[in-house]
Nucleic acid binder design. Structure first.
Lengths: 149, 149
DNA sequence: CATTAATCATTGCACACGCAACTATCCAGC
DNA sequence: GCTGGATAGTTGCGTGTGCAATGATTAATG
């Protein structure tokens, strides 16, 4: 097995590791958020993204990007949250194709309730993961990232 | 914002980065494998896991672990692949609750066809990802993992 | 040895997703 | 100013998924 074949195998192995870690974290978040505030991970991601805009709007497309979801799934996701009164659709005036979404006060409140639960679950998941020798290096690499930008 | 709050934010940021990278890679693999051999990423994962056992069996539960899927989803996944003639169920003799799965020659052949496509797509996805400054450090960390174990 | 508990895999059901087709709106070229 | 093409978002449809309940087999306990 030559040098380039090794590189291929390293990539594949890295991808398997990444996928495993992703699965562990997502499962734990899903469980914790579902049990306490009845939110899925993507739903929380929406609230989080909107909240980080600090009361500002977000277009559907940005939301689709933030959640790694298709346009159609984004539509229904927003509809679900709107039906629960957590956010509102706002027609855009300068581009009447576009639709903005904004947190309601109920959405803001639920997000603030969910936030610490999310953080605890994430800490727990990473703590579990770091004990698996395969996953530990990736976990440490993640912790070393800078937050800015 | 104190020290421990920073740690929380670092974790959340790391998780968002991980999820973003995961999404990019999975989309690209899904597209490439679907177009060329009509396999989803999880389906390829099964063939890959079975193939890495080098002709040996795997229990449903191991498969569920390898794919990060629920037992029920694993059942149907195996059924799909079995219907396509890519693998076979084998009843276990020592524990008659358990069921082994094994690649057929057709499954082996399709895997060997899919493998280089998978690797190319993975290389392409990582190449794209490394150009995003947010993602680059994680990509490099993955490349630095050792393969053994 | 019988009975109860635990484990492996499968099915019913509801739901979230992606793809393709559709509508509405904006923009470019003439 | 009107027409053709691009873009934003929504809906129909088929499919993959998780949860809870079930059947089949093994292990534990009296």
């Amino acid at each position: 097995m030559g040098i380039s074949d090794d590189a291929v195998e390293v990539r594949a192995h890295g991808w398997r590791t990444l996928a495993a870690l992703h699965g562990i974290i997502e499962s734990e978040l899903e469980r914790a958020l579902g049990a306490s505030v009845d939110l899925s991970v993507v739903e929380y991601t929406v609230l989080d993204a909107l909240s980080r805009q600090d009361g500002w709007h977000m277009r559907m497309q940005q939301l689709a990007r933030a959640t790694a979801l298709s346009p159609s799934a984004t539509t229904r996701l927003v509809t679900r949250l709107e039906d629960r009164g957590l956010l509102t659709r706002i027609l855009c005036v300068d581009d009447r194709r576009g639709i903005y979404t904004e947190l309601t006060s109920a959405g803001q409140a639920l997000y603030e309730k969910a936030h610490p639960i999310h953080d605890e679950a994430l800490e727990r998941a990473l703590g579990d993961a770091v004990e698996q020798p395969e996953l530990a290096p990736v976990v440490h690499a993640l912790q070393g990232l800078t937050v800015e930008a």
